[in-house]
Design a protein around this nucleic acid. Structure first.
Length: 286
DNA sequence: AGATCGCCCTGCTTGC
DNA sequence: TGCAAGCAGGGCGATC
């Protein structure tokens, strides 16, 4: 599944291969892929036609393309299985092709949104004065954003009176951290997922934030080289999952620090992976 | 009204 | 062997 580093790779790929091009036609092949565009697929296609796209932007796992009509943008989210592919126009359709954008130039490539599980999609939205699609105005900055405010994050985290993994996944506090990165950062920080945020000191929060950034940057280093071939994988197949993860998916495997078998626990309809020795549970599991 | 939880979706894996 | 349940999970909206 695409995580923030993969989405960033996609953003760079879009800027390189799609920005500056003018949409000749948009084909919506599956209505669910435009479900956030409330006016429907026909309206989506009609309003996109003739628009020229600007440099791709990203916040958390959201991507958007500002349009030459400065009032609005194409917003995208890859969900669990979404891909944005720049493909030759004559390449056969992918099995799960949902949206196709043709361009009014002679480059011979088109942009395809392919998504098996249809958690992702594209939509058009008005921009806020900050140039953000209005429907994501509530999404906090992500930890790779230079304007991310570490001190404000630490304050808000401790004020929330929640547990640390919930906080990491709370998009109003910090965006772009999914289940995998949360578990990896917590393992690095030797923190149990149910640790109350109120018990974390500011230095501890700063350290945790550092771990989140380290994991993301490591993945970005690997993924950043994957899109510069001819068939432009603007798809986020970064090779991240070839990297060795320290926590996620390692149930019963030895902790890389202490050798204790890692555990998996059901958590919020998901799983949490942790080392029972390095990441001691809080005394009161309330 | 802030916090919590269920649901959306499909293909691969697991178990009987 | 075949079928069915389990699992993956971001984000939104309903609910309390």
């Amino acid at each position: 599944m695409p995580e923030l580093p993969e989405v960033e790779v996609v953003r760079r790929g879009l800027t390189r291969w799609v920005s500056g091009r003018t949409v000749a036609e948009a084909d919506v092949l599956h209505p669910r892929a435009v479900r956030r565009h409330l006016a429907g697929g026909g309206d989506f296609a009609a309003r996109l036609k003739g628009r020229t796209v600007g440099p791709a932007r990203r916040r958390g796992k959201y991507l958007w393309l500002p349009l030459d009509d400065p009032g609005f943008s194409v917003l995208g989210h890859l969900g669990m299985s979404g891909q944005l592919l720049v493909r030759p126009e004559d390449a056969p359709d992918e099995k799960h092709l949902r949206i196709r954008l043709r361009f009014a130039d002679g480059q011979g490539t088109e942009l395809r949104f392919v998504d098996q599980r249809t958690f992702g999609g594209l939509s058009l939205h008005d921009n806020t004065p900050d140039g953000l699609p209005d429907v994501i105005a509530h999404i906090a900055r992500d930890p790779l954003d230079p304007a991310f405010d570490d001190a404000a994050f630490a304050l808000a985290l401790r004020a929330k009176r929640t547990t640390v993994k919930r906080a990491l996944l709370d998009q109003s506090l910090i965006s772009g951290v999914g289940n995998i990165y949360a578990d990896e950062a917590l393992w690095r920080g030797r923190l149990h997922y149910d640790r109350p945020t109120a018990t974390l000191t500011r230095p501890r929060v700063a350290e945790l934030l550092g771990h989140v950034r380290d994991v993301m940057n490591a993945a970005l280093d690997v993924g950043g080289t994957s899109f510069d071939s001819l068939y432009v994988n603007v798809n986020g197949e970064s090779g991240y999952f070839d990297r060795s993860l320290d926590a996620y998916g390692r149930e019963d495997e030895p902790c890389r620090r202490c050798g204790t078998p890692m555990r998996r626990r059901p958590w919020m309809n998901r799983s949490s992976y942790y080392c029972p020795r390095c990441q001691r549970p809080p005394r009161t599991t309330a």
